[in-house]
Design a binder for these strands. Structure first.
Lengths: 230, 230
DNA sequence: ATCAACCTAATTGTCGACAATCAAGGTTTT
DNA sequence: AAAACCTTGATTGTCGACAATTAGGTTGAT
């Protein structure tokens, strides 16, 4: 019932866009695989018109790659691209943390505190259940981004970059994370936000993201070594 | 001849996209004005299919605003939105300057020096010809962004944000600028880049953009005052 | 046997027509 | 007279068919 409201946005083209984004991000279509317009259109019971319109939008989000007269493929997210995204994230989320200090409400801060306490319990209970943690990680970051009150910043991060991040996570479930350290950094960050210390919050956020990036870079180096060894 | 290669991308939908972006950014279609699909399609000698596909892409760039079943309008860029964009620019271009220090070639640095010298001459000759200066301002920033070698960063700044900036410039030719100060800041920045001082370059770039933003904010306050006075 | 040219099948790009929706003006009812 | 309800005109959304282009396999020549 609720679904019938949610899924029926207004127009087929828009529904398709939302559904395809979710399907691609969640790994339902494997990266690099070809997307046949005719086939997909038949599957979703629409004509190729709306489907192509949806594809144009999704292409703009960098979730698929299109070559004229050839076809569309689900985007593949190499570790190199991911590292680029992390550099962008570092800049943008640093700014978001900075602005959040100026605009966040006390109520939102209380919400963030609750969120982190939940995460703490999760980590203590199921030591290293990284899936829950990663979802929680996203939640925390989302809240701070929203609290920046800068709609451009919000849409860039949430609508463009985070789709790609989620996509990568589904692609590479082996991705390392560091739940305990990350949680500590979240607590530090929240403290800075609570004290409305914008510069400190920005610095902590940037360091937090930079460390995640370094983890990926190290993995990449490791992979390089093993590949060389072959 | 060159043109026939440039303009004929490959497909009508893509040609349209490029042409419409240029037309909208350059103010050919005035902000807020309604765009009739039938009319535009006839004007460009295409059917509504490719035109709508182009619109979807352009909507993703935030150059037009679409309401389902109602229509499409050329985006209006309020000073408030512009200020938001400047905050994003500050973060992203700061990072770009930082990365550029690590990746720029000596040849590119020499190019930047020449560019700034040209600007200096321009300013000395035609004191306050802000159009040339603003174009030059963009050139300088573009080069640094490109030198970051981060393709995500480059596409975000050049393909998304700068279109909006150019659009605003065409909308409000009365926009104040501060050629002399800006040029000094550019020289400072270039010095930091030459010395590969990433942190300093980032800081200088951020301050440079922040000052531009403050100029806009002050204009906004002035306008507010005059409006209150009425 | 190898390479080049050609042909064919399949996919994408484009079009014109039809269906669905909205905005505006006029009509009727209270 | 004001408000609610059609009705109509125009615009957008969707569809199925056709045209253009590509990829792959086949044929032919060197």
């Amino acid at each position: 019932m609720n679904q019938s409201i949610e899924t029926k946005e207004q127009t087929k083209s828009e529904n398709l866009t939302a559904q395809l984004i979710e399907a691609i991000v969640s790994g339902e279509y494997s990266p690099g695989s070809k997307i046949s317009e005719t086939e997909l259109a038949r599957f979703f019971n629409v004509s190729r018109g709306p489907l192509r319109e949806a594809m144009m939008r999704i292409e703009a989000l960098n979730l698929v790659e299109r070559i004229p007269h050839v076809g569309t493929r689900v985007a593949t997210l190499s570790p190199e691209k991911l590292i680029e995204i992390y550099a962008v994230r570092e800049a943008l989320e640093g700014m978001a943390a900075n602005l959040a200090c100026k605009n966040i409400t006390d109520q939102e801060i209380a919400g963030l505190e609750m969120l982190l306490e939940q995460h703490q319990e999760h980590i203590e209970q199921v030591d290293g259940a990284s899936y829950f943690h990663q979802q929680g990680d996203f939640d925390f970051h989302y809240q701070i981004i929203k609290a920046s009150r800068n709609s451009k910043l919000i849409s860039l991060l949430c609508d463009e970059l985070y789709h790609l991040l989620r996509m990568y996570r589904y692609q590479s479930p082996s991705t390392q994370s560091r739940p305990t350290h990350a949680l500590n950094e979240h607590f530090q960050l929240l403290t800075a936000i609570k004290e409305r210390d914008a510069e400190l919050a920005e610095m902590l956020m940037r360091r937090h993201i930079k460390r995640s990036r370094e983890l990926i870079e190290n993995q990449l180096i490791e992979e390089g070594k093993t590949n060389d060894a072959e």
